[in-house]
Amino acid sequence: MHLNLQNRVALITGGSKGIGYAMAHHLGQAGARLVICARHEATLKEACTSLQAKGLDVLSVVADVSVPQDIDALVASAHAHFGRIDMLINNAVSSSQNGFDALSDEDWQHHINIKLMGYIRCARAVLPHMKSQNWGRIVNMAGITARDVSAYRMTNGVVNAGVTNFTKHLAEQVGAFGVTVNAVHPGYTWTPRLESALEKWAALENMTVEQVTALRLKEIPIGRFMQPEDMARLAVFLCSDAASAITGQAIAVDGGSGRAIPY
């Protein structure tokens, strides 16, 4: 199978840890040059150094995707450094784990602005470059709550559903330019973010972290949490020439935990 990712340029938001870092690592191993961004400079620098130590070509840019000017500067820096942008992995996220009554307007707006509007703005910024090349790949990370109701993750569900809908609409509009757009639905993925969520859920449910963890594991038929690499391998495929006819799709990587049947 020919991936044809050698020397293509991938821009990964939220690329300093967890799924984003795994995306960068696997795309880099497939031959791509990398641009990673995150809000926190120290964490981003550490990730960049780690990826460079693996022999990968990496540019890091501090950026907050909830700030339109940061997105413009990020894309401009990426294009100035590498001369092209071929792939966008929209991965940045920040959300509140809580029940409906405890979610303020600010909680809702924060999640919408970082994830849904951040993804829309990033796509808008990179698409002129992709269209001019008649080739591009956009992969939007949209958690499994886009399909399934989950306690304490209402903003996640609403925003991820929006990202999935945006994915389908955008795919229809840019396919003629050689650009594919797909969404990936991660299930429970073992990252620092999930560890923090488990602690929050334990407090909300008056249980121990171990008890909540065991309950979540029971929901997963394969009997384990997903790993960031599980998402990264799919993203590499979706970005490759091997997936050139796959667009407008939302693919779950959830170990079978999703109960919805998409048609």
Rank of each mutant, 00 (worst) to 15 (best):
H110V: 01
I222Y: 06
D105P: 00
Q133H: 02
W190H: 13
Q6L: 12
L44R: 03
S94N: 14
S94Y: 14
N90V: 06
A22E: 11
A260T: 14
Q109W: 13
V93L: 08
A245M: 15
T43M: 04
G258R: 08
E172R: 11
L234P: 04
A42M: 07
S77Y: 00
A22N: 07
M1A: 12
M87A: 12
R193V: 11
D86S: 06
T213H: 13
M87E: 02
N182L: 10
I12K: 02
A30D: 10
Y119R: 02
M87F: 09
S257I: 09
A232Q: 01
R137M: 07
G258L: 11
A92W: 06
V65F: 03
A78S: 11
F177D: 15
T145K: 03
M231G: 03
L198F: 13
A161K: 06
L3S: 03
A76S: 15
A232R: 03
K115L: 12
W108N: 04
I261T: 14
L5T: 10
L103S: 09
Q173E: 15
M130E: 09
F100H: 06
G14V: 07
Q69H: 09
A73G: 02
N113I: 05
K17F: 00
E229R: 08
I120C: 05
D254P: 07
T247D: 10
A142T: 09
G14D: 08
H25V: 07
